[in-house]
Computed example of a mutant assay.
Amino acid sequence: MNQVDVLALSGSLRADSHNTALLHAARTLHSGGLAIDIDHDLGRLPLYNQDLDTGAPPAPVAELRARSARYAPSSPSARSWPRWERKCWSSRR
């Protein structure tokens, strides 16, 4: 059986987040064939400001972009995210 690699992002930054706890439980309790990589650095991402979108993205954005490129999107909305992300952090002409 092939292993599926998943990058899990919790939208909550709270230390005792129930969402993050569920991700940890899923990683512990899965039945095999699944590797769940939980990202704990979303709090480092800046709020998007189009006025500052003039070139290379901030380091945390570039790091998440590089990390997420190793994973395949898992839903139709996730498939559209890379296009949105490139648009938000690319320079406008």
Rank of each mutant, 00 (worst) to 15 (best):
K87E: 07
D41Y: 14
A69E: 09
D41W: 07
T54M: 12
G32A: 04
R79T: 11
R67A: 04
A15N: 10
H24E: 12
M1Y: 10
L29F: 15
A25N: 03
S90K: 07
H40L: 14
M1T: 14
E85C: 06
V61A: 00
L34V: 15
N2Q: 15
H30S: 12
V4M: 06
L34R: 10
Q3T: 11
I36P: 01
D41C: 06
V4L: 15
N2A: 08
S91R: 12
L29K: 05
A35H: 12
P60W: 01
S74M: 14
W84A: 10
V4H: 10
G33C: 06
D51I: 05
Y71C: 03
L7P: 05
R86T: 08
A15R: 09
S91I: 00
L47F: 15
L45D: 01
S90H: 09
S91G: 06
P82A: 15
S12P: 02
S77P: 02
L42F: 02
C88Q: 13
A35P: 13
A21H: 12
Y48I: 03
R14S: 12
N19Q: 05
L52Y: 00
P60N: 02
W89A: 06
A62D: 00
T20S: 08
S10T: 15
E85V: 11
S91M: 05
C88Y: 09
N19S: 13
V61Y: 02
Y48Q: 01
R93S: 14
N49D: 14
L52H: 12
E85K: 02
P58F: 00
W89R: 07
R83K: 08
L23G: 02
A8T: 05
A25C: 04
P58D: 03
L34I: 14
R92S: 13
R86V: 03
S80D: 13
L42Q: 04
L13Y: 03
L42K: 04
M1C: 10
R79C: 08
N49R: 12
G43Y: 02
S68M: 07
D37G: 04
P82S: 12
S17R: 07
L64T: 03
G43K: 02
L9R: 11
A78T: 04
